[in-house]
Design a protein around this nucleic acid. Structure first.
Lengths: 247, 247
DNA sequence: CGGATAGTTGACAGGAGTCAAGGTATGTGG
DNA sequence: CCACATACCTTGACTCCTGTCAACTATCCG
């Protein structure tokens, strides 16, 4: 659970760090620089570095000075805040193409702790690069606006489906949401450790475990590999979650 | 609870409608057009109208074509979505200076239902005006970005303090949040009807009523006028909600 | 003065947290 | 390859929180 980070470094250390190749990036269409053309990118983005990060690594911690925004090329990241009792609370889960730390960039410090939930491939965009580009390129702002809109969409789905109702409806909703975020097919959804799922739902691990057990017993969820589950399509009808446990 | 709106109109009808005077608007600094100078405003914003709206009026409904964004000059508005069981769920509460419907403006239809919680004074900015201005004024986009950031901030506080834990901590947190949004002093917070508060917290009205009763019994909440309560400052230490009911 | 809507309170039942014990994985070192 | 340590997950028993149902009261209007 405890993640490792070199405390002497102002920022997470990448494994296999290298300069980014934004022009040929597979996720460019969905990333921040979608609006900039190839020539612009090639010329300006020397400051952006790309690298790998191991599962459980803290990318940044709440309160750290916000020096950079990260773009997630691959993997899944959790943003952790605290609830009223200082218990950890996962506020968002981000998948491929997400911008991480955007909400902090002009606040000075990061508003949450970002932790890798799998091995990741991400790009670090220094604050300075982002600001100087932003001043000159309205197109970048459009990209930012898109990110904010996505953010709003997810927050509301989060509140509407993950924070209300009985556990027996929220757990399946979470599984489906995770499948969607990570891009996994329903036949092989990779689930995080249960304490993470509990921190998303704001429930106890035991409670979560019981619902999962029941889903398995009913044949709606089947373990196909470590951390990987195949879930029945009836598990939820999208948009409107029915209670598959009949509780 | 059911609010009235003229179904034949494509949009909410204002009482006392008139052209807006954005240049002299008291909340301009916090509104969308903060970045535009007075001359620009005066010249371009003929399309923006200002008007009053009665408490309980539906400003727009989920699924309506998104023709306009509204800026709230005064009052409080709730955005209502539905949870997994189709029960109403209040996703956000907006106060003075807020932009309403922003998240829908390029989605075609509104993503929530917006309802006046008090008598309001608001401005209607047609989609077309917003888009044409946006194309020419990067500064407007900065204003938009600010709105999105505020949105993110509130969503996360919402999830962190209103969706987790026992009712006895969440109810006081809600009261304080409402005071902050509406700008009321703690000595005279105007609270909405209890079904609204219950829809924010995702709990039953009865449950809410019990917590309120206990707060009153403990002298932490005192009714000073209809809908208006004075709450003790110990009721919550900001940022970190302690359980004032000791439950 | 009714009639409607909103809020309150009690009794009860079911959901969910907590504590404690045992089980299963995953990884390390011999 | 096995033994062991550690973390993670599961299950049961118990208690407390919270929703539901129902009756009652308060408030607001015309």
């Amino acid at each position: 659970m405890a993640a490792s980070r070199d405390p002497s470094s102002p920022c997470v250390t990448f494994l296999k760090e290298r300069e980014s190749d934004c022009v040929h990036c597979a996720i460019r269409a969905s990333a921040l620089f979608a609006e900039l053309d190839a020539a612009e990118l090639d010329q300006r983005l020397k400051a952006i570095h790309n690298g790998l990060v191991r599962s459980n690594t803290i990318i940044y911690s709440k309160g750290d000075p916000a020096e950079a925004v990260f773009t997630l090329r691959n993997g899944v990241v959790k943003l952790v805040g605290a609830d009223a009792d200082d218990a950890p609370r996962i506020l968002r889960i981000l998948g491929r193409g997400a911008a991480i730390g955007l909400e902090s960039i002009d606040g000075g410090t990061y508003a949450h702790t970002a932790v890798a939930m799998r091995d990741l491939n991400l790009c670090r965009i220094p604050k300075s690069a982002l600001l100087s580009l932003g001043g000159q390129h309205p197109g970048l702002l459009t990209g930012l606006a898109t990110k904010w809109r996505e953010h709003a969409y997810w927050s509301e789905r989060w509140i509407g489906t993950l924070c209300t109702g009985k556990q027996s409806t929220r757990v399946p909703a979470l599984i489906c949401l995770l499948a969607e975020i990570s891009g996994d097919p329903l036949s092989a959804v990779r689930l995080p450790r249960s304490s993470d799922m509990a921190d998303v739902l704001g429930c106890s691990v035991e409670g979560l475990s019981r619902r999962m057990a029941k889903l398995k017993r009913k044949g709606l969820l089947r373990r196909v590999a470590p951390w990987t589950y195949s879930c029945a399509p009836e598990l939820l009808t999208w948009g409107r979650v029915v209670d598959p446990l009949g509780e």
